[in-house]
Nucleic acid binder design. Sequence first.
DNA 1: ACAGAACCCCGCCATG
DNA 2: TTCATGGCGGGGTTCT
Length: 319
Amino acid sequence: LAVAFLIYPEFQLLDLAGPLAVFETAGRLGGRAYALATYAVGGGLVAPSCGIPVLSAPLDALAQAPAPDTLLVVGGYGSRQAMQDARLLEALRGQGARARRVGSVCSGAFVLAASGWLDGRRATTHWARSQEFARCFPQVRLEPDCIHVQDGPVWTSAGITAGTDLALALLAADQGEALARAVARQLVVYYRRPGGQSQFSALLEMSPSGGRFATLLDYIRQNPGAPLDVDSLAERCHMSPRHFARSFRAELGITPARAVERLRIEAACAALEEGGLSVKAVAERYGFGDPERLRRACQRVLGISPVALRRGGGYGGDA
DNA sequence: ACAGAACCCCGCCATG
DNA sequence: TTCATGGCGGGGTTCT
């Protein structure tokens, strides 16, 4: 089981180190061992953004080696340069086609998308860059609030430490849940992080000034209890419902109703964790009407009940 | 638990 | 021609 990582200058070391630790530990705990290797355009020492260099083999060596089982591209500040590097993209296309599966960590999704691997597929990336991603790659079905997404042989993960979650998921697919769980335990990270598949606050940071929908998102945040169905939102933007929904999706990478639900949930969760208000009062104030709907929405989006949330099980507590 | 209503979302096509 | 726009139908999900 060979896992090849593609790195480049100014990558995020933790994007590499987290998955490496998962695969290494799997072997140590009695699973089949993974053969781990890093590759870069020129090979040699590659400096990540933190400055401590990592030794890599050149891409040519990857082409001459037996096909890797898994090919992963990491993220980081350097991804903006990397996604324009023809040699890197070519290697992703050519070597990725030989691999059983390909994937990305964090903003590595930009590189993967630039190589064409994500066209027409579902994918995710770091929450802070999801809006940019939606604009750059409209042909990719972005899932901005997922920790990791699998679409056929292509796996993508959210920001930085989500690469660890991705590696655990790959491990579970290869060698079973039990081993993946044991590895998480050994590494002292969550196997399934609390908050379920929900990425940290993807929408709170969305569109602070730039986008067409900044004022609309502000309005939603200010008035989570108002009627926020698609028709009302479209009218508020002076667009037809069809055009509004399409533009919204293209700009933000998430559909209007889901965005409203996310924002309402985030606001309601904050209120619940703070205590003070009853579940019923929170449900009414944040646009869920009755507690039953809040409970179901909570369960759907976060995988956790409102009551559990109030006891402090929500976000945070990350690796 | 379940059926019908309501809503959401997207592919498709027409228009300008 | 390409691009923004908007209406429609239906499959899917959620609400009541």
